[in-house]
Design a protein around this nucleic acid. Structure first.
Length: 491
RNA sequence: CGGGGUGUAGCGUAGCCUGGUAUCGCGCCACAUUUGGGAUGUGGAGGUCGUAGGUUCGAAUCCUGCCACCCCGACCA
C-alpha cells in the first residue's frame, strides 16, 4: 500500500480523512453518509465498549435491547423532543417490494403501505418510556437502571467519518427514578463515568459542564456534557448526560405509587456516547506519521519485529522473538509477533506507526548476540536499546508511561488553548488567531447566544461545573453577568 | 439544499482543451537476490474510463441528465 502523506498543519480535515482510511479504521460505504468500520477500527471500538460497559455495570446498570423502529405516534408525544429530531428522521412507510408488471423493475409495493409509519430511532427515549409505563407501578419498581448498545440513524446533511455519520453506533442509558434528587444524582454520576473514561482510557482531557438552553437535548431539563479540544483548536462534544425531569413520564403517563399511597410521575435520565469517540481519539493524539493510540485502547499494545538476513539468522532471531512474545503475553499484554518475511523491517516500522501501536520491539542478530532489543515508543518516537532481561518489568511500565504522556500532552495543549477575554475584539481575536476555548462573560440570554453564534460561528460549549462566580459584563450586550462560560468553534 | 472541486485497475494518477479502445508509480502473482527505517531485478495478472442517454464511421475525450465523494456554507444532543 502506498501511503499518501498529508500533513496535519496543511489541511487538517484532509489529514483526518486520509488517516481514518490509511490506518484501516473505516471507509465510506456506498450508502450516503454511512461508513464501514473495518476490523482494526472496530477492535478499538470494542475496547471502548468493554471499558464503558464495565463501568456501567459497576454503577448498577444492566443492558437491555429495544426495537430499531418507533411508531410515529410514540415519537411525537413529547413536543420539544419531536421538534428537535423531526428534521433528521428516516421513516419507514412500506413493508414490501414487488416486480412492476410493466417495467419488470423492483418497486415499492403501493399496496404494502403501513397503517402507521415507523421512525428509525434517532434515540430511544420514546419507545423506552412507553415500555416503562407498564413496568412501573410502585416505588418498589424504582429505580430502573438500563443501558442499551445500539445503532441509531440521524439524517444529517453533512457527514464526516466517525464524527457525524447518518447511522452510528452508541450506547444509551435510560433510567427511571422516584425522586428528582436521585435522577439528578444519576445524571451527574454518569457524567463522571464518562469523564473518567475519557481521561483515563482515551487519554483525552475533558471539561465537564452543563449546556445552555440553546444547546440542550430536545426534551431535557438539563444537559450535562464533556467537551474535548481537538488539535485544530475546535471543540468536540464527547458525551452527554441528560436530566429529563418528568417530561417523558408525563408524555407517556408513567406514574408510580409512593409509600404514602400517592400517585407521582417518574423522574428520568438518559446518557450516551457514540462512535464519535473514535473521532475524538484520532484527532486528539495522532500526528503526520499516523495514529497514536493510548495503550489502554490499542488492539496491539506491543509489536515485535524480527530482523534477519539468512535462514540461520531467522532461526536464532525467531527463537528469541518467540520467547519475548510469550513472556509479554503471559503478563496480559496484547502483543503481536510479525514474522512475515516478504516485508522489510522498514516497511513494518512505518506500518505500525501508521496504525498507532504504542511500543515496537525490534530484534536482530546483533541483539541476539548482545542479549538486547531495540524498543521504540510511538508517542515520542524515541528508540532505546535495552537488555532483554529488562523487558518483563520495563514494558508494562513503559505502556503506563505512554498512556500518561499522551494524556499530559493533550492536557498541555488544552491548557494553552483556553483564553480568557473581556471584550468582543479579544473574543474574535482568540477564536480566529489563537483557537480553542474562549472563556467569556455572557448575559445568559438565548438571543445573545444566537447573535454570538451568527457573528463568530462559536457556540457556548458549556458552563463548566464548579464554575467560579465572578461579576463581569457580557462581551456582546454589555449586560451584567456573574460567571464566565466556555465558547468555541465546534464539530 | 447553495457555491466550488473531483470521479480512469485495490490505491494514487497521465491522457480530455485538439475524438481513433488507455499512461505511469505503488500494490498483487511467480521466481531469484534481499531484509537494523517504507528492497531490487525479470516475467505476469488485473480496466463496464462513476452512471444513463445523445452527437459521431468511431467517445475516457464533445453535449445533456443522474449518482457518489471532498472542501466552504446552511443544518446538527
Amino acid at each position: 500500500m502506498e501511503i499518501k502523506k498529508i500533513k496535519r498543519s496543511e489541511d487538517y480535515s484532509a489529514w483526518y480523512n486520509n488517516l481514518v482510511k490509511s490506518a484501516d479504521l473505516a471507509e465510506h460505504s456506498d450508502v450516503k453518509g454511512c461508513m464501514i468500520i473495518k476490523p482494526y477500527g472496530y477492535a478499538i471500538w470494542e475496547k471502548m465498549q468493554a471499558e464503558l460497559d464495565r463501568r456501567f455495570k459497576e454503577t448498577g446498570h444492566q443492558n437491555a435491547y429495544f426495537p430499531l423502529f418507533i411508531p410515529k405516534s410514540f415519537f411525537t408525544k413529547e413536543a420539544s423532543h419531536v421538534d428537535g429530531f423531526a428534521k433528521e428522521c428516516a421513516v419507514v412507510t412500506h413493508y414490501r417490494l414487488k416486480v412492476d408488471p410493466e417495467t419488470k423493475e423492483i418497486i415499492v409495493d403501493p399496496d404494502a403501505k403501513l397503517e402507521e409509519e415507523l421512525i428509525v430511532r434517532p434515540t430511544s427515549e420514546t419507545i423506552i418510556w412507553n415500555t416503562y409505563r407498564s413496568w412501573i407501578q410502585s416505588y418498589r419498581d424504582l429505580p430502573i437502571l438500563l443501558n442499551q448498545w445500539a445503532n441509531v440513524v440521524r439524517w444529517e446533511m453533512r457527514t464526516r467519518l466517525f464524527l457525524r455519520t447518518t447511522e452510528f453506533l452508541w450506547q444509551e442509558g435510560h433510567t427511571a427514578h422516584a425522586t428528582q434528587e436521585e435522577a439528578v444524582a444519576e445524571t451527574r454520576q454518569m457524567l463522571e463515568v464518562y469523564a473518567d473514561f475519557a481521561e483515563n482510557i482515551l487519554a483525552v482531557p475533558v471539561i465537564k459542564g452543563v449546556k445552555s438552553a440553546n444547546e440542550r437535548f430536545a426534551g431535557a431539563i438539563d444537559t450535562y456534557c464533556i467537551e474535548g479540544l481537538m488539535q485544530d483548536g475546535k471543540a468536540l462534544q464527547m458525551g452527554t448526560s441528560h436530566f429529563l425531569g418528568q417530561n417523558f413520564a408525563k408524555a407517556f403517563e408513567v406514574k408510580y405509587v409512593t409509600k404514602e399511597n400517592k400517585q407521582e410521575y417518574v423522574w428520568a435520565t438518559s446518557w450516551g456516547v457514540s462512535t464519535r469517540l473514535m473521532g475524538a481519539l484520532i484527532m486528539s493524539h495522532s500526528d503526520d506519521e499516523g495514529l497514536v493510540l493510548p495503550p489502554r485502547l490499542a488492539p496491539i499494545q506491543v509489536v515485535i519485529v524480527p530482523i534477519f538476513r539468512k535462514e540461520e539468522e531467522k532461526i536464532i532471531v525467531m527463537e528469541k522473538a518467540t520467547a519475548y512474545f510469550q513472556l509479554l503475553k503471559k503478563q496480559g499484554i496484547s502483543v503481536k509477533l510479525d514474522d512475515r518475511d516478504n516485508l522489510t523491517p522498514g516497511y513494518k516500522f512505518a506500518d505500525y506507526e501508521l496504525k498507532g501501536v504504542p511500543v515496537r520491539i525490534a530484534i536482530g542478530p546483533r541483539d541476539v548476540q548482545n542479549g538486547t532489543v531495540e524498543v521504540a515508543r510511538r508517542d515520542t518516537k524515541e528508540k532505546q536499546v535495552m537488555s532483554a532481561a529488562d523487558l518483563e518489568h520495563k514494558i508494562p511500565h513503559l505502556l503506563e508511561q505512554i498512556q500518561a504522556n499522551i494524556y499530559q500532552r493533550a492536557l498541555d495543549y488544552r491548557s494553552e488553548h483556553i483564553h480568557t477575554v473581556d471584550t468582543w475584539e479579544e473574543f474574535m481575536d482568540a477564536l480566529e488567531n489563537k483557537t480553542g476555548f474562549v472563556s467569556a462573560h455572557w448575559d445568559g440570554t438565548s438571543e445573545t447566544e444566537e447573535k454570538i453564534k451568527e457573528m463568530s460561528k462559536a457556540t457556548i460549549r458549556c458552563i463548566p461545573l464548579n464554575n467560579p462566580q465572578e461579576n463581569g459584563k457580557c462581551i456582546l450586550s454589555g449586560e451584567a453577568s456573574k460567571e464566565r462560560v466556555l465558547f468555541a468553534r465546534a464539530y
